[in-house]
């Protein structure tokens, strides 16, 4: 046993040392962990505007998904933060900022002058824009004859069939209900939730709630729910896939995702460096927009977006916009409206 055994042991030790050395080396190198909602979307986004920057700067990109606010909070509270830049909904960005869970962005390091000021908050920069549109099944309703306003969307006598909404309070169904009930778009916020519920009551038996983007596509493509309040990019993707669906842009509600950096992340400077680079990276943003039909946040990027995709971006339909979803309102009222929504749904 002896000689071979010793040889083996020595080799083993060498291998171990080598591994250890390797570890130390990569530990010294710069590393950024990117967290988004996962799936294909995340792959496209990372390839479009994280990898090129990382390659040029010798940074190793790590990924995790999906964003989970409970994990976010748990990492910060336990002071074991592994997430670097995290895609979140803007109301969470406000909550995280107020509670000290997210880093306040340094204006000297992250230049936000190029993006819409409505999409920026103290701890967060915008990542992409999307719209809640009136999406319809083109076999059930034609391009000429389909609901073009939220009032028509709520009119089940004129346009029969089930209606789809996202099952969360921030799903813009309250905004849609109030617009349908005649509230002027510039007076939406603060939302009159009682009035919205009254309007929703009128079509309650026809409402189907969905949970995920896949469900959204499935429901409207199959014709089961011919009219649905949807994310423009999902409908565009389904239409590209040959499904009979289309977006009606009139009275759409603009929404957006943001990026935040969890408090206590070990390389906040690097995370901000990427963020700053991203906001200036017109080509990277356009590259992602071309694949996803979610709009870039830097106007300069639009010139690099293919014309057929560009037509499908919210940035091209600003004249048909009802409002931008006000996430400072939602940060404050999300809990209480969620509770009422639960109650209302269960009745």
């Amino acid at each position: 046993m002896s000689r071979r055994g010793i040889a083996l042991a020595v080799t083993g030790l060498l291998v171990l040392t080598a591994c250890g050395g390797g570890h130390a080396a990569s530990g010294d190198g710069k590393q950024l962990t990117v967290v988004m909602w996962g799936g294909d979307d995340q792959k496209k986004a990372v390839a479009a505007y994280v990898e090129p920057w990382a390659k040029a700067n010798g940074v190793t990109v790590k990924q995790d998904s999906p964003t989970d606010y409970a994990k976010f909070r748990a990492q910060v509270e336990s002071k074991k933060v592994s997430w670097g830049v995290v895609e979140v909904e803007p109301n969470f960005a406000v909550t995280a900022c107020e509670n000290g869970w997210a880093v306040k962005l340094d204006p000297a390091k992250v230049d936000m002058s190029k993006v819409k000021k409505e999409l920026v908050s103290e701890c967060a920069a915008p990542l992409l824009e999307y719209a809640f549109t009136i999406a319809y099944n083109t076999k059930a309703y034609s391009a000429e004859n389909h609901p073009k306003t939220w009032a028509e969307f709520f009119d089940t006598a004129k346009f029969p069939g089930k209606r789809g909404f996202w099952k969360y309070a921030t799903g813009a169904m309250f905004e849609a209900a109030l617009l349908a009930d005649g509230v002027p778009a510039d007076q939406l916020y603060p939302l009159d939730i009682d009035r919205a519920f009254k309007k929703l009551d009128t079509i309650k038996k026809d409402i189907v709630f969905y949970e995920t983007g896949e469900q959204q596509q499935q429901l409207v493509s199959s014709g089961e729910v011919p009219l649905i309040q949807a994310w423009n990019g999902r409908i565009f993707a389904a239409a590209e896939d040959g499904q009979p669906v289309a977006n009606e842009w009139n009275q759409h509600l603009l929404s957006y995702d943001q990026v935040v950096i969890p408090a206590g992340y070990r390389d906040t400077a690097l995370a901000q460096e990427w963020l700053n680079n991203f906001l200036a990276d017109a080509k990277g943003q356009a590259d992602y927009a071309n694949q996803s039909a979610y709009a870039p946040v830097t106007p300069e990027a639009l010139q690099y977006v293919q014309p057929d995709v560009r037509r499908e971006l919210p940035t091209e339909h600003e004249d048909q916009r009802a409002a931008i979803v006000d996430y400072t309102y939602w940060a404050e009222h999300y809990d209480e409206v969620t509770e009422r929504l639960n109650e209302w749904m269960a009745q």
Partner: peptide
């Protein structure tokens, strides 16, 4: 995914409170 709003089970509610509303 298969139930309606009337068929919410407590597990779903716990996840919602934990990850959505953050009322731990």
């Amino acid at each position: 995914l298969l139930g309606g709003p009337q068929n919410v089970m407590i597990g779903e509610l716990i996840v919602q409170q934990l990850s959505g509303v953050l009322r731990w």
